[in-house]
């Protein structure tokens, strides 16, 4: 069994990228005065009717927007925060009418569930967890995983929600002896969970038993990797990582995403593909999202770049608009749209 070694994704020049592959279909202006931090799309049900809604997060305000005709949006709920600012939205797959948010300054201090009272339609927020939280991820099957505490008392906890969004049960996973940076689901394997660690390891848990199955060391060339997508095929584990610390290498350009393959039985692994910036583009990974076989990233240059992970190269580059750098980008979970946000609260919705 041998596998192709790291191949550098093609590096087309900017001019050869198809700018028409992104079509602006709607714009959403958040009038809140504070800095815009995140966006997400989710299903929300009102009066027995489920709609694909958009959630926007500013530092102290999270809003839910429902679609009107002709790609206009109406704000229907707003949750306010007074003491701790919002850091990120944490979507929980398979849950309707509930979204989680992580709050904190530099590190996450709280995770809260945002929902609405079924009696009077008023906005409600429930504190799910507080403390020194290092990483959080919403999982399929209405679950939320988080790691908290310091190295000697690190806790990895899975919370399962009931259909109505209320927290139902809690379970703990065996902690690795190193700080967890990010979590990642393994597509199609509901009982498997991955974590990346500060020591450049990828760990695997069995979520049913809580067992820590394996710790796999990956190439030290890229530190602080974020796990965006993982799937198992033919006994091998394929993982898409992003690298915010990757340095530009003359021959390769700037690697933003990487596909690695791991044999979980032996922990041996190798890079399969590096997804680099096209020639003429500079910058490192700032923030990004992967859905199906498409990866999108905001670069430190303020530009958004998109890769087709199967084709192996960058397919679109979206420069800053109105002289405003992009600050975050998400694939919509409800359709094939790209949600791109700027710090001033403007959200642009593109069809890709």
């Amino acid at each position: 069994h041998s596998i192709e070694q790291t191949k550098v994704a093609d590096l087309p020049t900017c001019d050869s990228l198809n700018p028409g592959s992104l079509q602006l279909i709607s714009k959403l202006k958040n009038p809140s005065g504070s800095c815009s931090v995140d966006v997400s799309a989710m299903w929300w049900e009102r009066a027995g009717f489920k709609e694909p809604c958009i959630i926007t997060a500013c530092e102290y305000v999270v809003s839910l927007w429902r679609p009107l005709d002709t790609w206009q949006w109406e704000k229907i709920y707003t949750w306010h925060f007074t003491e701790v600012p919002v850091l990120q939205i944490v979507p929980v797959p398979d849950v309707c009418n509930l979204v989680c948010v992580a709050l904190g300054s530099l590190e996450i201090r709280e995770i809260r569930a945002l929902l609405c009272s079924s009696e009077d339609e008023s906005e409600k927020q429930v504190l799910l967890k507080s403390g020194n939280i290092k990483a959080v991820l919403g999982l399929t099957g209405r679950r939320l995983v988080s790691s908290s505490g310091t190295l000697c008392d690190q806790q990895v906890e899975i919370m399962t929600f009931a259909e109505d969004g209320r927290s139902k049960e809690k379970q703990f996973l065996m902690p690795p002896e190193e700080t967890i940076l990010t979590f990642g689901e393994v597509q199609g394997m509901q009982e498997a969970l991955l974590g990346t660690t500060i020591m450049n390891n990828i760990v695997i848990w069995n979520l049913k038993t809580g067992q820590l199955l394996k710790k796999m060391h990956i190439d030290d060339s890229y530190q602080a990797s974020v796990c965006h997508k993982a799937y198992s095929e033919m006994g091998l584990l394929f993982v898409v990582l992003s690298h915010s610390c990757a340095k530009e290498r003359e021959a390769l350009g700037s690697p933003v995403f990487q596909l690695i393959v791991i044999n979980p039985k032996t922990t041996l692994n190798v890079g399969v593909m590096l997804y680099c910036l096209p020639q003429g583009q500079a910058g490192r990974f700032l923030e990004g999202d992967v859905k199906d076989h498409f990866a999108a990233a905001v670069l430190t240059s303020g530009t958004i770049a998109i890769w087709d992970l199967l084709l192996g190269h960058c397919t679109a580059v979206l420069p800053p608009i109105s002289d405003q750098n992009w600050s975050f980008v998400k694939w919509s979970g409800t359709d094939s749209h790209l949600l791109a946000g700027q710090k001033d609260g403007n959200i642009f919705i593109y069809r890709y």
């Binding site: 394996k214 006994g235 393959v261 044999n263 979980p264």
Partner: peptide, 23 residues
Amino acid sequence: CSGADLGPISLNWFEELSSEASL
């Protein structure tokens, strides 16, 4: 491209690692 040996592969790696971890 050159090959890289990742060692013996098992299609049931998740079940096997779970059994090993239970021992």
